[in-house]
Amino acid sequence: MLINLSDVLSEQHKPVEATVPFEMEAIKLKSGSFPIISKEPVHLVVTHVKDKEVQIQADSKVGIKIPCDRCAEDVREEFVLDFVKHVDLNVSDADLREDLDESNFIVGYHLDVDKLLFNEILIGWPTKVLCSEDCKGICSVCGQNLNQGTCDCEDTGADPRMSVVRDLFKNFKEV
Rank of each mutant, 00 (worst) to 15 (best):
F172N: 15
T127I: 07
L9C: 13
I66C: 00
F83Y: 14
E133C: 11
N147S: 14
S60V: 09
K136T: 09
K128F: 11
A58W: 01
F83P: 06
V175C: 08
K52P: 03
K173S: 12
D7L: 06
D101Q: 07
H48T: 00
V8N: 00
S10H: 05
I37L: 00
P35S: 02
I66R: 00
C135V: 02
F105G: 07
L117F: 06
L117Y: 03
E102H: 15
V8M: 01
V42D: 00
V129A: 11
T19E: 05
D114N: 09
S38G: 15
E17K: 00
D114S: 14
D69G: 10
E25F: 01
G149L: 06
E120Y: 09
K52R: 15
I106E: 12
Q148M: 10
F105S: 02
D59M: 02
I3C: 07
M1Y: 04
S132H: 13
N4R: 10
D95T: 01
V164H: 06
R76T: 01
L29A: 07
A26D: 07
D134K: 14
Q148H: 15
E154C: 06
G149E: 12
V175A: 07
R70Q: 04
S92M: 08
E78I: 00
L29H: 05
E17H: 03
Y109P: 10
E77A: 04
V113C: 03
K14T: 12
F34D: 14
D93I: 00
V164Y: 03
V46I: 11
K30A: 13
L116C: 02
V45P: 08
V42P: 00
E174V: 12
M1H: 08
E77C: 04
L96E: 03
A26S: 14
D112T: 01
V45F: 11
K170Q: 13
K61E: 07
V164K: 12
R161Q: 11
E98A: 10
S10M: 03
D95M: 05
D152M: 15
P35N: 03
F83E: 10
D114K: 06
H43G: 10
K28C: 08
K14G: 03
N147C: 12
G137H: 12
I27W: 04
D74E: 12
